[in-house]
Design a protein around this nucleic acid. Structure first.
Length: 428
RNA sequence: GGUCGGGUGGCAGAGUGGUCGAAUGCACCGGUCUUGAAAACCGGCGAACCUCCGGGUUCCCUGGGUUCGAAUCCCAGCCCGACCGCCA
């Protein structure tokens, strides 16, 4: 959520921001409602004040007759107040709906426009390989080496679920280990988070738990939802808390399973592991002072690059265009890995993303910090970034490391956890 | 899942119908003292919103209810603790 004061002061800026981000919202209607409510609220407060005065006078009234008269007076005042309050509540409901739909402000350097206006800002990892043999995609490779059982997944849980098997399972654990060790070395607090969370927390982070378009699985008869990312649980960890300034910036990383209904995603390129209902992810999260968030965002982006450098996978980084930013993000960088088996002749596919959400999530979740010697509290900034999304990382590894003899080399950094150098090694 | 006990300011903790937005302690801030620090002493110290800058309204887990008036009473929910049951 945005700062209400800011909206009232600069409605045109906010409206323009909504427009470039493709968010339909009538900011001026909001300002009008808000202004009206404030006037009415003042009247309510005046009635409350009078009623409070009356109530206090009853305790010290000298006789019953006076007491009864005052009681009647108090009753009347509070009735009036309630009627007025009901009118305010109606207007407030409309205002709140607009308010909640407003996206975060946008970084001035973020490219303006729809998805295809994203700007490439960086390339990394090794050169894209020239293959001297027909390239297979990860689905075929996984089939050949019995690494993923999509059929079994479908039998048990439906389309979009799968079993990781053999080196597929070991690779998942290896990727978790590699990334967790790396992040601990960078000063992150390692965590394993709940895979379910309350609706309130989901909403605070910016997810909509129920409704026809929801990406979220919810649990019947409970106020619980399967998380779509550990961003939800890590961000929710300190909801309602006041953090000490000295502890900021606070960097956490968390392993969780991620569940997504992928409603409305039908038809989008989604062969194999690319778009699935469940995967494991290591997520980075940071709580920072406002002046630290920009640098932290660059840092998160650097870490994501280092992880893919370490895995030896070619990638590029893009600065996401305004029209493609989620509501809470102020700016977002996506890291796209080269997937040789994707599309006709290989394509880049998104494997990680990092967002600076400034105070947007913190305001909803009420996460603040206190400055020593200063009155009051301030909202922290929150950032998130994928360290590794296992399913998509697997695609990149299998497809980039396939060999002419059909085997798949295991990236060096993962070997100590997988326990071998190669999947399907040919007999020598 | 059951029974009992709890949920109050950054923390601890008092407060069972009206002068309570809330004692006290710790922490924190300012000052005195000191070469400096500590100790001691003095003072300050919750938040949001509105304001004609006098002040006002709201907030004691959440949501309802009783009452002229609720931190305090009633109902429901959530959470925490103890014990019991069940279980990886």
């Amino acid at each position: 959520m945005l700062d209400k004061k800011f909206i009232l002061e600069y409605p045109d800026v906010v409206q323009k921001n909504c427009d470039v981000r493709g968010a339909k919202a009538d900011v001026h209607r909001f300002v009008q409602l808000e202004t009206e409510c404030r006037l009415m609220q003042q009247q309510v407060e005046e009635l409350s004040r009078k009623a409070n005065v009356v109530s206090k006078s009853i305790g010290v009234a000298k006789d019953d007759a006076e007491r009864d008269q005052r009681k009647e007076e108090g009753r009347t005042l509070r009735e009036q107040k309630e009627q007025l309050q009901e009118a305010i509540d109606r207007l407030t409901a409309e205002a709140r709906a607009i308010y909640r739909s407003l996206p975060n402000l946008t970084h001035p350097e973020a490219p303006i426009g729809a998805e295809d206006h994203a700007r490439e800002i960086r390339r990394g990892g090794p050169e894209v390989r020239k293959f001297s043999f027909p390239v297979l995609d990860h689905v075929v490779l996984a089939e050949q080496h019995d690494l993923i059982d999509f059929e079994g997944g479908a039998r048990v849980a439906g389309n979009g679920f799968y079993f990781l098997k053999n080196e597929g399972a070991l690779l998942e654990l290896a990727l978790q280990q590699f990334v967790m060790q790396f992040l601990v070395g960078e000063g992150f607090v390692p965590t394993i988070t709940p895979d379910l969370a309350r609706a309130e927390i989901l909403q605070g982070i910016g997810f909509i738990p129920r409704g026809p378009e929801t990406q979220i699985y919810s649990v019947e008869n409970f106020d619980l939802n399967l998380v779509a990312t550990a961003e939800i649980t890590l961000g929710g960890l300190y909801s309602g808390e006041v953090l000490e300034m000295e502890k900021l910036p606070l960097k956490m990383c968390g392993v969780s399973h991620c569940f997504r209904t992928e409603a409305g995603a039908a038809g989008r390129a989604s062969r194999g592991l690319y778009r699935v209902h469940q995967f494991t992810k290591v997520e980075m999260f940071a709580f920072t002072l406002p002046e630290q968030s920009e640098a932290m965002h660059q840092y998160f982006c650097d870490l994501e690059c280092k992880i893919f450098d370490g895995l030896g996978i070619p990638y590029r980084v893009i600065d996401t265009a305004t029209g493609d930013l989620g509501g809470p993000a102020y700016r977002k960088f996506d890291l796209e890995a080269w997937m040789p088996g994707r599309g006709k002749a290989g394509e880049y596919g998104e494997v990680t993303s990092t967002s600076n959400c400034t105070d947007y999530q913190a305001r909803r979740l009420n996460i603040r910090y206190k400055t020593r010697g200063e009155k009051g509290t301030h909202l922290v900034h929150t950032l998130n970034g994928t360290a590794v999304a296992i399913s998509r990382a697997l695609i990149a590894i299998l497809e980039n490391y396939q060999q002419p003899d059909g085997s798949i080399i295991i990236p060096e950094v993962l070997r100590k956890w997988v326990g071998k150098e190669r999947i399907g090694a040919t007999e020598e």
